[in-house]
Amino acid sequence: MPRNPYYAGPITDHFDGTRFFNPQGQGPTGLRDALRWQFGGTRQKWPKRLPTPATVRPEPAVDDLTITMVGHATLLIQTAGLNLLTDPVWSPRASPTQLAGPRRVIDPGIGFDDLPRIDAVLLSHNHYDHLDLATLKRLKAAHDPVVITPLGNDTILRPTGLRCLTGDWGDAVAFGPLTVHLEPCHHWSARGTRDRSMALWASFVITGPQGTILHIGDTGFDGGKPYHGLAARHGKLRAAILPIGAYEPRWFMRAQHQNPAEALHGFQLSGATWGIGHHWGTFQLTDEARDAPLAALDEALAEQNIPADRFRALAPGEAWAIPPA
């Protein structure tokens, strides 16, 4: 077996001693399928640059619950006087190098220097559109937040000097008045060609005095398994922040990225009152057009009889003061 450079621990129902995996799920596709996708000719053209609809300077702190879209999977969650960032990326590219790779087509909705004090970062997994070392080093220098992340990712973050609190699926991390629970989702991880699935991926459930929040950075729908039992374990969800983009072609992306209809199905399974769609419109990672997730979301809202004001795909710079559950 190859050596795991990130994590060493006991064998479990989702770790074989070297690699993590999705129980009764699907692993990452192989090179042949990746080449078939890359040369399939179905990639839609995105604009090279778009103006940011709005940039905001958030309040220093919020007692209740406000969620602001920065871009892609980066959101600012303000609740109970604490400020949390999810999967922060302010770099121009989501790539191991800033010379090539997916380029940002729209600037962050919050300028880095306009961030309030950041208390914690929720880091879901190690793909480059979610774990950006350059941004994390900037956060260390400016805010020195705690990073809460699944097993193995702390090793990748070691060069940043950030303090890391790691956990397995089912673990919980207490942070001030909040508790962050790590939950299963259906995905995989890699920073290169030889470390596939050697660091864990997870979703987060945040419980606190202002209600319960679900945040999923990336997931395949997997028959709804990422959503089953959340309310029974954690109580009624006030808000669910779910990925809705990077889903075409379905034959290749289905296992790792849910589409908008699946995200809404998961939203209903979770029992959340309010929903936010993210992971769309910033970096072109897959074949669908930039605005396709918005059109597909509108169609799915109508088909599933969900009022449009209950689940919103936020644009960069858009803030939502979440109503009570």
Results as ranks from 00 to 15, higher is better:
98 Q>S: 14
99 L>N: 14
99 L>R: 15
100 A>V: 09
103 R>Q: 15
104 R>V: 10
104 R>G: 11
105 V>D: 11
108 P>C: 05
108 P>S: 11
108 P>A: 10
109 G>Y: 02
110 I>F: 10
111 G>S: 15
112 F>K: 13
113 D>Q: 15
115 L>G: 12
117 R>F: 00
118 I>T: 07
121 V>M: 02
121 V>K: 00
121 V>Q: 04
122 L>R: 07
123 L>N: 05
124 S>M: 06
124 S>P: 12
124 S>K: 00
125 H>V: 01
125 H>C: 01
127 H>C: 08
129 D>N: 09
130 H>L: 09
131 L>G: 08
132 D>Q: 01
133 L>Q: 09
133 L>F: 04
134 A>P: 10
136 L>Y: 06
137 K>R: 11
137 K>G: 02
137 K>Q: 06
138 R>I: 01
140 K>I: 06
146 V>P: 04
147 V>T: 03
149 T>K: 01
152 G>I: 13
153 N>Q: 15
154 D>T: 05
156 I>T: 11
157 L>S: 06
158 R>L: 10
159 P>E: 01
160 T>K: 00
161 G>Y: 06
161 G>S: 02
163 R>W: 02
165 L>I: 07
169 W>S: 06
172 A>C: 05
174 A>N: 15
179 T>E: 05
179 T>R: 11
179 T>S: 09
181 H>W: 09
183 E>K: 10
184 P>H: 07
